[in-house]
Computed example of a mutant assay.
Amino acid sequence: MRCNLPENYLPWYIEFFDSDYESIYSTIFEESQTTSEVNSLVNLLKFKQNDSILDLCCGPGRHALLLSKLGFDITAVDLNAEYLSQIINNAKKNKLMLKTVRSDMRYLPFHQQFDVIINMFTSFGYLENDEENFKVLEAIHSSLKSKGWLLIDMLNREWVVANNIKTEWKIGANNHAIIEHRDINLMTSRSSITFSTLQKDGSILNSIGHHIRLYTLTEMVRFLEKANMDVKDVYGNLQKEKYSINSRRMIIVAQKNS
Protein backbone atom coordinates (compact mmCIF):
# COMPACT_ATOMS: atom_id res chain seq x y z
CA MET A 1 0.00 0.00 0.00
CA ARG A 2 1.37 3.42 -0.95
CA CYS A 3 1.16 6.52 1.21
CA ASN A 4 -0.69 8.97 -1.01
CA LEU A 5 -0.22 12.22 0.86
CA PRO A 6 -0.54 15.81 -0.37
CA GLU A 7 2.70 17.70 -0.94
CA ASN A 8 2.04 20.08 1.95
CA TYR A 9 1.15 17.26 4.35
CA LEU A 10 2.78 17.72 7.76
CA PRO A 11 2.71 14.53 9.85
CA TRP A 12 1.38 14.97 13.37
CA TYR A 13 4.67 13.80 14.88
CA ILE A 14 6.55 16.69 13.29
CA GLU A 15 4.06 19.37 14.32
CA PHE A 16 3.44 17.99 17.82
CA PHE A 17 7.06 17.42 18.77
CA ASP A 18 8.11 20.76 17.29
CA SER A 19 5.70 22.77 19.40
CA ASP A 20 3.72 21.08 22.16
CA TYR A 21 5.30 17.90 23.49
CA GLU A 22 7.60 19.28 26.17
CA SER A 23 5.12 21.82 27.51
CA ILE A 24 2.48 19.10 27.88
CA TYR A 25 4.60 16.23 29.19
CA SER A 26 7.48 17.96 30.98
CA THR A 27 5.86 17.70 34.41
CA ILE A 28 5.74 13.88 34.31
CA PHE A 29 9.39 13.46 33.33
CA GLU A 30 10.91 13.95 36.76
CA GLU A 31 14.58 13.10 37.24
CA SER A 32 13.73 10.36 39.74
CA GLN A 33 11.49 8.65 37.16
CA THR A 34 14.20 8.75 34.50
CA THR A 35 16.78 7.37 36.95
CA SER A 36 14.44 4.53 37.86
CA GLU A 37 13.76 3.73 34.19
CA VAL A 38 17.44 3.71 33.26
CA ASN A 39 18.39 1.54 36.23
CA SER A 40 15.62 -0.87 35.23
CA LEU A 41 16.87 -0.92 31.63
CA VAL A 42 20.41 -1.74 32.75
CA ASN A 43 19.14 -4.51 35.01
CA LEU A 44 16.68 -5.92 32.47
CA LEU A 45 19.02 -5.99 29.47
CA LYS A 46 22.24 -6.70 31.42
CA PHE A 47 24.21 -4.04 29.55
CA LYS A 48 27.94 -4.66 29.27
CA GLN A 49 30.22 -1.65 29.60
CA ASN A 50 31.46 -1.95 26.02
CA ASP A 51 27.98 -2.40 24.48
CA SER A 52 27.01 0.05 21.77
CA ILE A 53 23.47 1.28 22.46
CA LEU A 54 21.08 3.18 20.19
CA ASP A 55 18.30 5.24 21.77
CA LEU A 56 15.82 5.41 18.89
CA CYS A 57 13.38 8.34 19.01
CA CYS A 58 15.35 9.72 21.93
CA GLY A 59 13.44 13.00 22.30
CA PRO A 60 15.27 15.47 24.56
CA GLY A 61 17.59 12.64 25.60
CA ARG A 62 16.58 11.91 29.16
CA HIS A 63 17.53 8.21 28.84
CA ALA A 64 20.48 8.70 26.48
CA LEU A 65 22.16 11.32 28.66
CA LEU A 66 21.89 9.27 31.83
CA LEU A 67 23.11 6.11 30.09
CA SER A 68 26.08 8.11 28.81
CA LYS A 69 26.72 9.37 32.33
CA LEU A 70 26.88 5.74 33.45
CA GLY A 71 29.65 5.17 30.93
CA PHE A 72 27.85 3.41 28.09
CA ASP A 73 28.53 3.99 24.38
CA ILE A 74 25.34 5.82 23.36
CA THR A 75 24.01 7.04 20.03
CA ALA A 76 20.87 9.19 20.26
CA VAL A 77 18.63 9.34 17.18
CA ASP A 78 15.64 11.59 16.59
CA LEU A 79 13.97 13.45 13.74
CA ASN A 80 13.67 16.64 15.80
CA ALA A 81 16.76 18.83 15.38
CA GLU A 82 15.94 20.96 18.43
CA TYR A 83 15.94 17.93 20.72
CA LEU A 84 19.31 16.83 19.38
CA SER A 85 20.66 20.34 19.95
CA GLN A 86 19.47 20.16 23.56
CA ILE A 87 21.26 16.82 23.98
CA ILE A 88 24.50 18.19 22.54
CA ASN A 89 24.37 21.21 24.87
CA ASN A 90 23.60 19.05 27.91
CA ALA A 91 26.38 16.63 27.00
CA LYS A 92 28.91 19.47 26.70
CA LYS A 93 27.74 20.99 29.97
CA ASN A 94 28.13 17.67 31.79
CA LYS A 95 31.25 16.54 29.87
CA LEU A 96 29.52 13.48 28.44
CA MET A 97 30.52 11.56 25.35
CA LEU A 98 27.64 10.49 23.14
CA LYS A 99 26.75 10.70 19.48
CA THR A 100 23.64 12.29 18.00
CA VAL A 101 22.13 11.54 14.60
CA ARG A 102 19.12 13.16 12.98
CA SER A 103 17.16 10.54 11.06
CA ASP A 104 13.72 9.28 10.17
CA MET A 105 13.35 6.02 12.08
CA ARG A 106 12.50 4.18 8.86
CA TYR A 107 15.80 5.07 7.21
CA LEU A 108 18.51 4.65 9.82
CA PRO A 109 22.04 5.18 8.44
CA PHE A 110 23.57 2.21 10.26
CA HIS A 111 24.55 -1.34 9.37
CA GLN A 112 25.10 -3.99 12.05
CA GLN A 113 26.45 -1.35 14.42
CA PHE A 114 24.60 -1.78 17.73
CA ASP A 115 24.43 -4.41 20.45
CA VAL A 116 21.22 -2.95 21.84
CA ILE A 117 18.47 -0.66 20.53
CA ILE A 118 15.91 0.86 22.89
CA ASN A 119 12.67 2.51 21.80
CA MET A 120 10.99 4.15 24.77
CA PHE A 121 7.67 5.75 25.77
CA THR A 122 5.46 4.47 22.94
CA SER A 123 7.58 5.74 20.06
CA PHE A 124 6.50 2.93 17.74
CA GLY A 125 3.27 3.15 15.72
CA TYR A 126 3.59 6.80 14.66
CA LEU A 127 3.37 6.25 10.93
CA GLU A 128 0.48 6.27 8.48
CA ASN A 129 0.00 2.53 8.07
CA ASP A 130 1.37 -0.88 9.03
CA GLU A 131 3.68 -1.00 6.02
CA GLU A 132 5.43 2.20 7.09
CA ASN A 133 5.66 1.06 10.72
CA PHE A 134 7.18 -2.23 9.57
CA LYS A 135 9.95 -0.29 7.82
CA VAL A 136 11.04 0.83 11.29
CA LEU A 137 11.56 -2.79 12.35
CA GLU A 138 13.47 -3.48 9.15
CA ALA A 139 15.73 -0.50 9.87
CA ILE A 140 16.24 -1.72 13.44
CA HIS A 141 17.14 -5.19 12.19
CA SER A 142 19.68 -3.73 9.77
CA SER A 143 21.20 -1.55 12.51
CA LEU A 144 21.65 -4.37 15.04
CA LYS A 145 24.66 -6.62 15.19
CA SER A 146 24.08 -10.36 14.85
CA LYS A 147 22.19 -11.56 17.94
CA GLY A 148 21.68 -7.94 19.01
CA TRP A 149 18.81 -6.95 21.31
CA LEU A 150 15.78 -4.70 20.93
CA LEU A 151 13.61 -3.33 23.73
CA ILE A 152 10.33 -1.63 22.80
CA ASP A 153 8.37 0.15 25.53
CA MET A 154 4.80 0.75 24.40
CA LEU A 155 1.27 1.25 25.65
CA ASN A 156 -0.69 -1.97 26.00
CA ARG A 157 -3.61 -1.76 23.56
CA GLU A 158 -5.75 -4.05 25.74
CA TRP A 159 -5.35 -1.72 28.72
CA VAL A 160 -6.12 1.38 26.64
CA VAL A 161 -9.35 -0.11 25.29
CA ALA A 162 -10.51 -1.16 28.76
CA ASN A 163 -9.53 2.09 30.49
CA ASN A 164 -10.21 4.77 27.91
CA ILE A 165 -11.34 8.00 29.57
CA LYS A 166 -12.70 10.46 27.04
CA THR A 167 -11.63 13.63 28.85
CA GLU A 168 -9.15 14.28 31.65
CA TRP A 169 -7.51 17.32 33.24
CA LYS A 170 -3.81 17.64 34.01
CA ILE A 171 -1.33 20.39 34.89
CA GLY A 172 1.36 21.13 32.32
CA ALA A 173 4.34 23.48 32.16
CA ASN A 174 3.94 26.90 33.83
CA ASN A 175 1.00 25.47 35.81
CA HIS A 176 -1.30 25.70 32.80
CA ALA A 177 -4.42 23.55 32.97
CA ILE A 178 -4.56 21.04 30.11
CA ILE A 179 -7.54 19.00 28.95
CA GLU A 180 -6.75 15.69 27.25
CA HIS A 181 -9.31 14.53 24.69
CA ARG A 182 -8.92 10.79 24.04
CA ASP A 183 -10.35 8.51 21.39
CA ILE A 184 -9.57 4.94 20.33
CA ASN A 185 -10.74 3.67 16.95
CA LEU A 186 -11.41 -0.03 17.45
CA MET A 187 -11.36 -0.75 13.71
CA THR A 188 -7.94 0.79 13.08
CA SER A 189 -6.50 0.45 16.62
CA ARG A 190 -5.34 4.06 16.40
CA SER A 191 -5.30 6.05 19.61
CA SER A 192 -5.80 9.79 19.18
CA ILE A 193 -5.12 12.23 22.00
CA THR A 194 -5.47 15.97 21.48
CA PHE A 195 -4.91 18.72 24.02
CA SER A 196 -6.50 22.03 24.95
CA THR A 197 -4.37 24.30 27.14
CA LEU A 198 -5.95 27.08 29.18
CA GLN A 199 -3.71 30.15 28.95
CA LYS A 200 -3.32 32.75 31.71
CA ASP A 201 -5.34 35.27 29.70
CA GLY A 202 -8.26 32.84 29.54
CA SER A 203 -7.74 31.83 25.93
CA ILE A 204 -7.48 28.19 24.87
CA LEU A 205 -4.61 26.82 22.80
CA ASN A 206 -5.45 23.63 20.92
CA SER A 207 -2.76 21.08 20.04
CA ILE A 208 -2.74 18.57 17.20
CA GLY A 209 -1.76 15.93 19.77
CA HIS A 210 -0.60 12.42 18.89
CA HIS A 211 -2.23 9.67 16.85
CA ILE A 212 -0.58 6.31 17.41
CA ARG A 213 -1.34 2.87 16.01
CA LEU A 214 -1.53 0.58 19.03
CA TYR A 215 -0.54 -3.03 18.46
CA THR A 216 -1.56 -6.16 20.33
CA LEU A 217 1.12 -8.52 21.58
CA THR A 218 0.09 -11.04 18.91
CA GLU A 219 0.55 -8.43 16.17
CA MET A 220 3.95 -7.38 17.51
CA VAL A 221 5.20 -10.97 17.72
CA ARG A 222 4.22 -11.53 14.07
CA PHE A 223 5.71 -8.18 13.03
CA LEU A 224 9.02 -8.95 14.73
CA GLU A 225 9.15 -12.49 13.35
CA LYS A 226 8.62 -11.05 9.87
CA ALA A 227 11.57 -8.72 10.54
CA ASN A 228 13.69 -11.76 11.52
CA MET A 229 13.65 -11.08 15.26
CA ASP A 230 12.47 -13.40 18.02
CA VAL A 231 10.51 -12.18 21.03
CA LYS A 232 12.30 -13.49 24.11
CA ASP A 233 10.39 -11.78 26.93
CA VAL A 234 7.33 -9.60 27.48
CA TYR A 235 6.76 -7.62 30.67
CA GLY A 236 4.11 -5.32 32.10
CA ASN A 237 6.70 -2.71 33.09
CA LEU A 238 10.45 -2.12 33.16
CA GLN A 239 10.65 -3.76 36.59
CA LYS A 240 9.83 -7.09 34.88
CA GLU A 241 6.30 -7.38 36.22
CA LYS A 242 4.41 -10.19 34.49
CA TYR A 243 2.56 -8.96 31.41
CA SER A 244 -1.23 -9.29 31.28
CA ILE A 245 -4.13 -7.57 29.54
CA ASN A 246 -4.37 -5.42 32.68
CA SER A 247 -0.80 -4.12 32.32
CA ARG A 248 -0.68 -0.46 31.33
CA ARG A 249 2.53 -0.94 29.38
CA MET A 250 3.94 -3.67 27.19
CA ILE A 251 7.71 -4.11 27.30
CA ILE A 252 8.93 -6.37 24.49
CA VAL A 253 12.47 -7.76 24.45
CA ALA A 254 13.47 -9.29 21.11
CA GLN A 255 16.69 -10.63 19.63
CA LYS A 256 17.94 -10.46 16.06
CA ASN A 257 18.21 -13.94 14.59
CA SER A 258 21.37 -13.41 12.59
Rank of each mutant, 00 (worst) to 15 (best):
S247Y: 04
V161T: 12
V231K: 00
I24K: 03
K240E: 13
V253E: 03
N257C: 10
S143I: 14
A91W: 00
N228H: 09
I204S: 01
D55V: 04
Q86H: 10
A254D: 01
Q239Y: 04
K166H: 13
V116S: 00
D153V: 06
R157G: 06
Q113P: 00
R222S: 12
T167D: 11
H211T: 01
M1D: 11
D233W: 07
N4G: 07
N246E: 11
T194A: 05
S142A: 14
N50S: 15
N175T: 08
H111L: 08
S247C: 07
A254I: 04
A81C: 08
E225D: 14
T167P: 00
R222C: 06
N133S: 07
I245Y: 04
S203E: 12
A139F: 06
E15I: 09
T100C: 12
H111D: 08
N133H: 07
M120P: 12
L5I: 10
F29W: 11
R248F: 00
S258C: 05
M97F: 11
S143K: 02
D130N: 14
K170W: 01
E138V: 05
S68L: 01
N257E: 11
Y9W: 14
I251N: 06
M1F: 11
K95V: 03
A227K: 00
F124C: 03
K135C: 08
F223T: 01
N43P: 03
K240R: 13
S23Y: 10
E132W: 01
K95G: 01
S68C: 04
L205H: 10
I184A: 03
M229F: 09
C3T: 13
F134W: 08
Q239C: 06
C57N: 09
S146Q: 12
K99N: 14
F121I: 03
